[in-house]
């Protein structure tokens, strides 16, 4: 123990050399570790390495810029594609709406006329009714409805039965109300001209009366329920 103490107090040069060397190394290691941990890791780097690093970053940045440009082009292409799709969809919707009105599968609203025909029982014949419809169509009627319940379409037919007038297999009660969407003035004139609907109904033979009301908004709510064709196919 005493010997060890003596050695410690008066160390040999060997001991001293080890002590100093280890002290220096420990100091340097700790300083280096602290600097690599705490400092900016580029601080201790050589110029060459920094230039290389900068080169790499520049290349990376160019590559990313190219990628951004490519992605922007893709985005543009997709957006214009989406626009084209939207336009096509709107066009298709417009056509579908037009066809639905023609086929009578959708309610319709617009300016038009309301024609009310009153006549004694059995005096309104299918011919007269057919003439009236033809004249309205000739005057540009787009949608025609009889008695708020029968929507006239391309397949509609008019005939007579012992009970009275039949349109599309539904009997038509008097008075007959014809609602038509189209240019109100043209439709009214189409019914009024000499030898037309009004003069026929009000003739001595029929003895009825006709009231024509032009309206800025005629609403037609009844629908035609089309059946799938059994024989015809698109050619």
């Amino acid at each position: 123990m005493r010997e060890a103490w003596a050695k410690f107090v008066r160390p040999s040069r060997t001991q001293l050399a080890w002590g100093i060397a280890l002290c220096l190394v420990a100091l340097a290691v700790v300083v280096q570790v602290q600097s690599t941990q705490s400092r900016d890791r580029y601080a201790g780097m050589r110029g060459d390495d920094l230039v290389q690093l900068l080169d790499g970053l520049t290349q990376e940045s160019e590559r990313l810029t190219d990628e951004v440009a490519a992605l922007e082009r893709t985005l543009e292409a997709l957006q214009s594609g989406a626009d084209a799709d939207e336009i096509a969809r709107q066009e298709a919707q417009r056509r579908a709406d037009g066809l639905a009105i023609l086929a009578g599968t959708q309610p319709a609203v617009g300016p038009g006329v309301r024609i009310t025909i009153s006549a004694p029982e059995g005096r309104i014949t299918a011919d007269l009714m057919l003439d009236a419809i033809q004249e309205l169509r000739d005057a540009g009627a787009e949608v025609i409805e009889i008695n708020d319940s029968i929507r006239l379409v391309a397949q509609s037919w008019v005939s007579e039965s012992p009970q009275g007038l039949l349109i599309d297999d539904q009997s038509v009660e008097l008075p007959i109300v014809i609602e038509a969407i189209g240019d109100p003035h043209a439709l009214a004139e189409g019914a009024r001209f000499r030898g037309g609907l009004v003069s026929q109904v009000e003739s001595q033979k029929v003895g009825g009366s006709v009231a024509i009301v032009e309206s800025p908004e005629v609403e037609i709510a009844s629908l035609h329920h089309p059946r799938a064709p059994r024989y015809a196919e698109p050619a």
Binding site: G19, C23, A26
Partner: peptide, 16 residues
């Protein structure tokens, strides 16, 4: 002995 003291001294100096 002195070697270990030197080592510790180096670390302490650097930290302090």
């Amino acid at each position: 002995m002195l070697a270990i003291i030197g080592l510790i001294l180096g670390v302490v100096l650097a930290v302090v």
